[in-house]
Measured scan of single mutants.
Amino acid sequence: TGEEYIAVGDSTAQQVGDLTFKKGEILLVIEKKPDGWWIAKDAKGNEGLVPRTYLEPYS
């Protein structure tokens, strides 16, 4: 379980453990880390770190 967020920009994984996503994708945020990198899952079930500045709450 988690909260749904929509990507407001494209982000390409810079290192192992990062999640690549495109603008408009809905991501499920699993954990919000205080350093600004959140753990999220995409629609295909891929999981990784995403920069919170690229996400907005999805409603």
Rank of each mutant, 00 (worst) to 15 (best):
S59T: 12
W37Q: 08
K44T: 09
E56K: 12
S59E: 10
T1M: 13
A13L: 08
K22M: 08
L49H: 08
G17E: 05
L19Y: 02
K22D: 03
G45N: 05
F21Q: 00
K41F: 07
Q15A: 12
D35N: 12
T1P: 12
E3S: 08
E25P: 01
N46D: 06
T1W: 13
K33Y: 09
G2C: 14
G17S: 07
P51N: 15
E3L: 09
G17K: 06
G36S: 04
G9F: 15
I6F: 05
G9N: 14
Q14F: 12
A7W: 07
P34L: 10
Y58Q: 05
P57H: 06
Y5L: 01
L55Y: 01
W37E: 05
I39E: 02
E25S: 08
K33M: 09
G17D: 05
K22L: 08
D35K: 03
F21A: 00
L27D: 01
K23G: 03
S59A: 11
G36F: 04
D35L: 04
Q14N: 12
Y54S: 13
G36L: 04
K32Y: 05
D10G: 06
Q14Y: 12
E4Q: 14
V16S: 11
K33W: 07
Y5W: 13
A40Y: 02
Q15F: 11
R52E: 14
L27P: 00
R52P: 14
V50W: 02
G48L: 04
Q15C: 14
K32T: 04
Y54H: 13
L19I: 05
W37P: 05
Y58I: 10
P34C: 11
A7N: 01
E25N: 06
I39Q: 05
I26V: 09
K23H: 05
S59F: 12
I30R: 04
A43C: 10
R52A: 15
L19Q: 00
L27V: 06
D10N: 09
Y58L: 11
K22I: 07
K32M: 07
D42V: 02
R52K: 13
W37A: 07
G48T: 02
D42C: 03
I39S: 04
E25A: 10
I6A: 04
A40F: 03
A7V: 06
L19R: 01
T53P: 06
D10H: 06
A7Q: 01
N46G: 05
I30F: 08
W38C: 03
L55E: 01
V16N: 10
L55H: 01
G48I: 03
K41T: 07
I26A: 03
Q14H: 12
A7I: 03
P51D: 15
D42F: 02
W37C: 11
L27H: 00
Y5T: 01
S59C: 13
G17Y: 07
K41S: 05
G17R: 06
T20K: 10
P57A: 07
K32G: 02
P34K: 09
L19P: 01
D42I: 02
T12Y: 13
A7K: 01
A43H: 09
S11K: 14
G2R: 09
I6V: 09
T53H: 14
V8L: 13
L19H: 02
K41E: 03
I30Q: 04
T1Q: 12
W37R: 10
G45K: 02
I6K: 06
W38F: 06
Q14C: 14
D18V: 15
A7P: 01
K32S: 03
A13K: 08
L49E: 05
K22F: 09
I30W: 03
G45R: 02
Y58C: 08
V50R: 00
D10I: 03
K33F: 11
K41Q: 10
G9P: 01
Y54C: 14
K23S: 06
A40Q: 01
G2P: 12
I39L: 14
N46R: 09
K23V: 07
D35S: 08
A40W: 02
E47S: 10
G17N: 06
A7M: 05
G17W: 07
D42L: 03
A40E: 00
E4P: 14
E3R: 10
W38P: 00
I26C: 06
G45E: 03
I39Y: 12
Y5G: 01
L49Q: 09
T20L: 08
